[in-house]
Computed example of a mutant assay.
Amino acid sequence: MEIRMRQKTFIIALIVLLLSTLLPAFSLAQTAVPEHTDSFYVNDFANVIDEKTENYIVNYGIRLHQQSGSQVVLVTVDSTNGAAIEEYATSLFNAWEAGSADNNKGVLLLFSIKDNEYWAVRGKGLEDELNDAVLSQILSQSLEPDFARKEYSFGARKTYGSLIQKLGGVWKEQVGSKTYVSDNAGVLKKVSKLYLNQSSNRFKTTTGSGIYVVTVKNSADKNLQEYTYSKFASIGAGSKDVMLVLDIGGDNYHILQGKDIDGMLTNEAMQEILDTVLEPEFARKNYASGAVATVNALHKFLLARADIPQSSTLASSETIAVSSTAALQADKAMVVENQPVSISKGIIVSGLFLVFILLFSLAIVWRNRKIALYGYGSRKQRHG
Rank of each mutant, 00 (worst) to 15 (best):
A148V: 11
G169L: 09
A156D: 01
Q174V: 14
G176S: 15
A148E: 10
N184Q: 09
S200D: 08
K193F: 04
K178T: 15
I211R: 05
A156L: 01
K178M: 14
E173P: 07
N197K: 05
R149Q: 15
Y195M: 10
A185V: 08
G208S: 13
K166D: 10
S199G: 11
V191S: 13
S199H: 00
T205Y: 04
E151A: 06
G186V: 08
G176Y: 07
G210K: 00
R149T: 11
G168V: 08
L163I: 12
R149H: 14
Q165R: 10
W171S: 03
R157D: 01
F154D: 11
G210A: 12
R157G: 03
G168R: 14
K158P: 03
K190C: 00
K193G: 04
N201V: 07
G161I: 05
G210E: 01
T207A: 04
G155A: 09
S162K: 06
A185Q: 09
Y152C: 07
Y152R: 05
T207C: 00
L167M: 13
Q198G: 06
S182T: 11
A185T: 11
K190V: 03
T159H: 05
S192V: 03
S200P: 08
K204R: 15
G169Q: 02
S199R: 05
A156T: 02
L196I: 02
V181C: 03
G186N: 08
T179F: 04
Q174D: 15
I164Q: 05
E151L: 06
Y152L: 09
R157M: 08
T159C: 09
T159E: 02
N184V: 09
K166P: 04
V170N: 13
K166N: 12
W171F: 15
K178N: 14
Y160A: 00
Y195S: 09
S162E: 13
V170E: 12
T207V: 10
S153M: 12
G168T: 08
Y152K: 04
T159K: 01
S177T: 15
T205C: 04
G208L: 07
G208M: 03
W171N: 08
A156I: 04
G210D: 00
N184P: 02
Q198H: 09
K178D: 15
N197G: 14
E151T: 05
R202D: 09
N201D: 15
K189D: 07
S182D: 02
L188G: 02
Q165A: 13
G161K: 06
Q174M: 14
V187W: 09
Y160F: 15
R202N: 15
T159A: 09
R202L: 10
T205G: 05
I164H: 08
N201K: 11
S200R: 03
Q198E: 15
G208P: 03
G210H: 01
L167P: 10
T206F: 02
T159Y: 08
Y152A: 09
N201C: 14
S200W: 02
I164K: 04
E173C: 10
Q198R: 12
S200V: 10
Y160Q: 04
W171K: 08
G155V: 00
F154Q: 07
S199I: 00
T205P: 00
N184S: 12
